[in-house]
Simulated assay, not measured.
Amino acid sequence: MRSPKEKITALIITYNEIGYIEKCVQSIDFADEIIVVDSFSTDGTYEYLNNHPKIKVIQNPFENFTAQKAFTLKQATNDWVLFLDADEVVTKKLQKEIVETINSESEHVAYWFYRKFMFQNKPLHFSGWQTDKNYRLFRKSKTQFSDKKIVHETLDVEGSSGILKEQLIHYCYKNYEDYKSKMLNYGRLKAKEAFYKEKKFNYFLLFLKPTWKFFNHYILRLGILDGKKGVIICYLNALGDYERYKELKQLEKKNELAYFLIMP
């Protein structure tokens, strides 16, 4: 039997998110419990969280996104969890929809959120982000993070899913160097993921995949309509793909060298 008011735990993982985490935390003050798992930030993020009266902060070494989120999910006391990135903000309308949803008679066990991508403080309308959605609200007892991915983690869901109407605000683009660093890091993690799956490097994909990514996001997905912002985002997203295949080549070289060194 459903309780009169379902409780909810908000979960976040962080590493050097000062300047963003404050907005995120403020937007989830309606949650019954807020837990943040920090990967030993050095910019004051941990100190800010540790001094916040409503937040339980835990420091845990970062292995990959899936492992960190799986660890964080285990910390939740309540079954309903709202799992956010530190650069995401829940609007007042979305807050209301979340509360109404978890207290409704719906049998869905997980919900997709559409996200509005913010280029600094201005919305990015196209550039491949217009259909971006992620699982953000779900029951802990009916879900788990798949171990098949270490970046852009996948949620395995036992049951049906729904989609909320209100959008989540995503302040992903802080500045050029920050976003570039993020895309390069994602590319390296995807290379490790491909390497573990024994996918092989080839020069054709090294040049084809980034070129296609830029063309797809800038032309087919209308990044051209975002002006200069669209050029920057589409280029950096394509750069992430280039880094993935370049790093895969390096991993294969290291593996071959290690094999050569242990040969009798």
Rank of each mutant, 00 (worst) to 15 (best):
T66L: 13
V90M: 01
K213H: 02
I18P: 00
I262R: 15
K213L: 00
H217S: 07
S106H: 08
V90S: 03
E33F: 11
K74D: 06
T154M: 09
K182C: 13
T45D: 13
P264A: 10
H170L: 02
Y173W: 14
K199G: 08
F62C: 04
I233C: 00
K246H: 14
I8H: 07
F145I: 15
E193D: 14
L236P: 10
I35K: 11
N16Y: 03
G162A: 10
I102P: 08
F214L: 12
E198C: 09
L257C: 02
D147R: 07
K209R: 13
F195A: 10
E177K: 11
K7M: 07
K92P: 04
I58F: 08
F40E: 09
A76R: 01
V157F: 09
G44D: 07
L84I: 01
D87N: 06
I12Q: 02
P123C: 03
K253W: 01
L164W: 06
C172V: 13
G187A: 09
L251T: 03
E153S: 15
N202E: 13
K116E: 15
D226A: 00
Y176L: 14
A76K: 02
E193S: 06
A238P: 07
D178H: 14
Y235T: 14
E105G: 01
I8Y: 04
R139H: 07
N78E: 10
V99H: 06
W80N: 12
N175H: 12
M1D: 15
M118A: 01
L225G: 04
I12V: 15
E153K: 04
K69E: 14
R221I: 05
K249F: 13
K190P: 05
N202L: 07
I28K: 13
F71V: 10
A31H: 07
T14F: 03
S141R: 14
K192Y: 11
S146C: 12
A191D: 04
L73V: 04
F145M: 11
I233H: 02
I169V: 04
I13F: 00
L124F: 00
K148G: 15
L261M: 09
F215A: 14
L124S: 00
L248D: 08
V57L: 05
K5H: 05
H108Y: 04
E100C: 04
G240A: 02
L82C: 13
S41G: 03
F83H: 12
N134L: 02
D178T: 02
S106Y: 03
T14K: 00
R2D: 10
